[in-house]
Amino acid sequence: MQITAAVTRSPAGPFSLEPLEIEEPRAGEILVRVVATGVCHTDMVMRDQHLPTPQPVVLGHEGAGIVERVGPGVTKVAPGDHVVMTFNSCGRCLSCADHAPTYCHEFFPRNFMGAREDGSSGLSREGETIHANIFGQSSFATYALCHERNAVKVDKTAPLEILGPLGCGVMTGAGAVMNALKVPAGRSLAVFGAGAVGLSAVLAAKAIGAGPIIAVDINPDRLALALELGADHALNGAEGGVVEKIQAITGTGAQFSIDTTANLKVMRQAVDCLGARGVCGLVGASKMGDELPLDAVSVMSGGKVVRGVVEGDADPDVFIPELIALHQAGQFPFDRLIQFYPLSEINQAVADGEAGRVIKPVVRMA
């Protein structure tokens, strides 16, 4: 069948809306009519070739939609079901067996390399192969092929057009707090970067009763929003002295910190601001080869922990419905981060997100 998709053909280039042909779902695959898809920084990392994602390619990895058809062997969902599409995983490795699919041993090829396991795509234009299968979905399109493993069935009463970001950015920030760091109620947390991931972390910290919650950014509007969403303090990193200010607020240093910026200088601050036995989670997508220098004595003598966090350490089939339930209970208003655009304005959505004018752009396919 023919679909419309936003195709990326050059590093840093614009998205072009093109008519493509999409294959029927194969065994284990699902054809989803996409309702809306979030725009994520990781899409831009792939677009700009900071990761070796082949082009031309259809990006998009925060899709939500309605199951149109299923391939042979699919039992998890049926036509008409509402789904959030998230990252893909193999289901066979040690991490997947331990219910830790975010650390799937095949995470990189299954999410970033633009092809199925056999090298095929599923998308084409007049005989030209268009790379797809990004995060097992490539959802900057009116229809997407995903896999049974990375489709999460959701309640039809939930507003489908806002749910896509739960598949990556929102899940990453919230999961860093709730799953990876397991921040207890009443413990201090410093969040560096008040974008979609960082503000999702603030929302999650507020929901579980952590505090004080300290947001750090250089955008005054984002800092103001962080305070509205539950942060107790908002620090402008451009004014300097962030580490010292956090230590003064907490008395002994933060007990937990999260860096969402992938900026090496800021990542160092996220570690330096910790008190004894503090834990820092690094969730930003850095460039391959980046090296983070740390004060070895401070880390060792303070018993500090620095760990990477992928997709919020989430089991999406469990965590995404939990976040939806929190939202429906009024305890996790992540919809306040979202601004909608039609698919025809995807380049404006991307530009507004990159310029910091919008927290979480979401493109609607209708």
Rank of each mutant, 00 (worst) to 15 (best):
H99Q: 14
V191H: 07
F135L: 10
A190Q: 10
L343S: 02
I66C: 01
A204P: 12
R277N: 13
I134E: 07
G198R: 03
G241L: 00
V74K: 00
A329E: 12
R187Q: 15
T142P: 02
F192V: 08
H99E: 15
V305S: 14
V197C: 10
S89W: 15
M365F: 00
K265S: 14
T157D: 15
M171Y: 09
G127P: 08
G312T: 02
V7W: 08
Y103C: 13
G312F: 02
I346R: 09
L292E: 09
A351V: 03
Q269G: 04
T260H: 01
A64V: 00
D81M: 03
A27L: 11
E244S: 06
G284T: 01
P109I: 10
A285E: 12
L94N: 11
E161C: 11
C96G: 02
G175M: 04
V358R: 14
A231V: 10
A151L: 05
E239Y: 06
R33T: 14
V39H: 04
F135K: 07
C40V: 00
A196G: 11
A201K: 07
Y341N: 07
F334I: 09
R149L: 15
A78C: 12
Q339Y: 01
C93L: 07
E354F: 13
I249L: 13
E21P: 03
P165S: 12
Q49R: 10
Q49L: 05
P159G: 02
V74I: 02
G136K: 11
K360N: 05
A158H: 01
V58A: 04
G302Y: 09
H50W: 11
C93P: 01
E126L: 14
A329V: 06
F256L: 06
V266E: 06
I258N: 05
A27F: 10
G289M: 03
A141P: 02
R149W: 09
S139Y: 06
G173V: 01
F112R: 06
E228S: 14
A144N: 09
G73F: 00
F332N: 05
E291I: 04
V58T: 10
G330M: 07
E126Q: 15
V279P: 03
A314F: 07
I346N: 02
A231L: 09
G278F: 04
P54C: 01
C104T: 06
L145K: 13
T102S: 15
G114T: 07
H61A: 00
E354P: 12
L294I: 14
V45E: 11
D352C: 00
A158N: 05
L264W: 00
A194P: 08
M267L: 03
T53V: 01
S138Q: 06
H61K: 05
A210S: 11
E322I: 12
M46S: 07
L31G: 04
A314V: 05
V279G: 05
E128K: 13
M365K: 10
F332H: 06
Q49Y: 03
P11L: 03
N111I: 05
A174T: 07
S286A: 15
I249F: 07
S301N: 12
A224M: 11
H99N: 15
S301Q: 13
D43N: 01
E62N: 00
